[in-house]
Amino acid sequence: MLESWRWFGPDDPVTLSDARQAGAHGVVTALHHIYDGRIWTPGDIAERMALVGKAGMTWAVCESIPVNSAIKRRDGDWRRTLDAWKQSLANLGKGGVPVVCYNFMPVVDWTRTNLLYPTEAGGFALRFDMIDFVAYDVFVLKRRAAEDSYAPDVIEAARQRLAQKSDDEILTLERNIIAGLPGGEDSHTREKIRAEIASFDDVSSGDMRANLVEFLKEVVPVAAENGVRLAIHPDDPPFSLFGLPRVVSTADDIQTILDAVDEPANGITLCSGSYGSRTGNDVTGMAERFAARIHFAHLRNVSKEPDGSFIESEHLAGDVNIVSLISILRAEERRREREGRSDSIIPMRPDHGHLLIDDQKKKVNPGYSCIGRLKGLAELRGVIAAVDQLT
């Protein structure tokens, strides 16, 4: 597997030199400073490629070209923004970027309620607390008809939870949920997120799925023509937030996506943490079922709770059997190699990491500190070596 590292560009407090010292050879990055629907030009892409190359690594995956809300709703100026997306995709392929990871989540990207949840070992983890989220949605944001999205006992638990929070704690919760996490398309104010959510009021899950299929019909041929493998990222968490439809959450969703445009360029990002945070998802079973179309892997772990809450655990702890998962991915790589496929090596990255040691005194992007990811990558590297030794 190609050991890779997410890098948010020249302003990332974790440098390319740090990534290289951690043992990464591939870089997962994007033109995060161009997020407003403008086309990523060949010059922009070449500049980023040169920075990565100078550090002794390769730009292995673009994560991500933002998919504008107009495309997801298929309204407004969706045609213009989609054409720009396709041109950026083509330019990435021509510029030598082989994989593009993207997502189709409406309004909010990956979402957590606590960015500094203390671990037993003294580090800090990312956490999604369902009761805190409901408290914010129903009693702080006061989304229209929010109560219809939750059971009465959950709403009552949320009411009691909110009553125990100070004003500062409520503001921190709000920032965590709507201010935007690294790699997300946008950040929001309370008023803006209400309006954005309302703009999807007439978009059902069926509509959202149909819009995704229409998107795929347009972008997959562009990817194939330009030597790019598309890898859709799952919803994170993989269930509805704010009553919004999320349609990349289960094995059935993946099957729909792959069947919609049955081409090798149309593939998935196997994110063990995202898929693993939904009860009922068998992540290793999904990896076996869709192995041939896994173009990128995010390897991390989660520990789920009965109410839908979860904490990002250590990479080799939690509910997902990472050893079995890596065994499946390595077997798929060997199969591709026997077939002579050019994509026999699957890029992976240690997706997120705990905030540890000296990084606790530094300004870092939530989930993307250096030491926690270095630890995760080292553990994953060890698993890969052990799997290969025993195969």
Rank of each mutant, 00 (worst) to 15 (best):
W78G: 03
L241H: 07
V383S: 01
R175L: 09
C370D: 14
G43D: 15
I193C: 00
L126R: 04
F242Y: 15
M208P: 07
D129P: 03
V320S: 02
F310T: 12
V323P: 08
F242N: 09
V97A: 01
D359K: 11
T284I: 13
D343G: 06
A84Q: 00
S199F: 11
S205Q: 13
A146R: 03
G243T: 00
M57E: 05
G23K: 08
E332Y: 07
E147C: 01
L258P: 09
T111E: 01
E288T: 10
E3M: 11
D137S: 10
A224D: 08
V248S: 10
D167K: 14
S64R: 01
I346K: 02
S4V: 01
G23A: 05
D343F: 09
V28G: 03
V222W: 00
L374G: 08
R20I: 04
E120W: 06
D358Y: 07
E333N: 05
V302P: 05
M49E: 13
E339L: 14
N365Q: 13
G96R: 09
V213A: 04
D167A: 15
R338Q: 13
I254W: 15
A291N: 08
D236H: 00
L115V: 12
G267K: 10
D11T: 12
C101Y: 01
E169S: 06
S369F: 04
L173Y: 03
S187D: 10
S369L: 02
A179T: 09
L181T: 11
L241A: 06
S249F: 04
